[in-house]
Design a binder for these strands. Sequence first.
DNA 1: CGGTGAGGTTAATGATGACTAACATCGGTA
DNA 2: TACCGATGTTAGTCATCATTAACCTCACCG
Lengths: 199, 199
Amino acid sequence: MQGVTTAQPLTRGRGSRRAEILEAAAALFAARGFHGTSIEDIGGAVGTSGPALYRHFSGKEALLAEMLLDVSERLHTSAANRVTKAPDAEHALDALLTGQIEFALSHPALITVHDRELGNVPEPARRQIRRLQRLYVEEWVTVLSELYPGCPPPRLRAVTHAVFGLLNSTPHSAGELEPEAMAELLRRMARAALASVQS
Amino acid sequence: MQGVTTAQPLTRGRGSRRAEILEAAAALFAARGFHGTSIEDIGGAVGTSGPALYRHFSGKEALLAEMLLDVSERLHTSAANRVTKAPDAEHALDALLTGQIEFALSHPALITVHDRELGNVPEPARRQIRRLQRLYVEEWVTVLSELYPGCPPPRLRAVTHAVFGLLNSTPHSAGELEPEAMAELLRRMARAALASVQS
DNA sequence: CGGTGAGGTTAATGATGACTAACATCGGTA
DNA sequence: TACCGATGTTAGTCATCATTAACCTCACCG
């Protein structure tokens, strides 16, 4: 009674399975945490059973590492691009806000996992993710320090984290508002919070 | 070779051991997550070995339940008291801000665990914690709806969660600023963010 | 048409970890 | 002084889980 029941997939866009697994895992990790989610759970969520996962990832930690690496890369490079294109600091800040809000609204699970599970990523990748996160924060700090010259960087870092906290609150207020309205609200609040910072 | 080495504690304020365990567990849960922390870890953190914990709590989940119940109770009753004492909505909001900021700055680990690990609390307690959390949020929403009449409650709930996110960012910017300065900054930003909300 | 490789399957295997059992110690207290 | 309750200790026990092994099977390519 072995291997009697293979059937469905076998034809699907190249690499789409990996993406499917990553997405399912993100949702599960966000809901139950890394250690609270079993390989079996993840397999189940994509219609395969447990160990099939090892055909796509070398292990559970590697899966998490790839997920977080991807997120921090996307955030950072998107931010870097936007800032580069912006004509001045004011527009740059606007672009950063747009990017973060878009991401937070479209991928709440990734946002959650991203700031919760770094500690479970094994060392080679961990350092790199941390680096990207730091670069992303510094992107904000740089723009802000142009807008608020004389405001010490540590203060600007705290401000940045506070704004992230505000924007990343989306997983908590899921469904309270339409995405459109939520985006508007978050942008307005973040702008006001930022404007309140003086040197 | 059994029981040969009992020694130190045995004399300490009544119930202080429970508190000590709760504190150590909060720090560990915040750092590694509920499932990422073992009973042995918790015991080790308070100088006893593993199973000693069962003399104080009926189990790991019960420990978490008590921790979260305590937090949500403190937040809610403190808020209710402050609001009741306040002469008007403006002062009430100020008091709510003060309370949340104080708590977030003095117990970052509890804040972290509080919004991460509810899912691991077993059912009898879970419902009660959720209830207290909801009441706490409604405390804010009520005050806000007095300040912004005509602003629909769902929007105010989203606003409240956004402000919580902002204030609870403290664990992320640990050590960037002195507690005093951080409190000031958070209050100012939160106030500005709130002021930006119109009906 | 035979082979091959990608992607699945079910059964180990080995750790880890929560919880229990059996036993020890010590500070009261009768 | 002998007992008792509060607290610890160590050594199981039993599940759960990540990971591996051994085996299938189909799509496709020669």
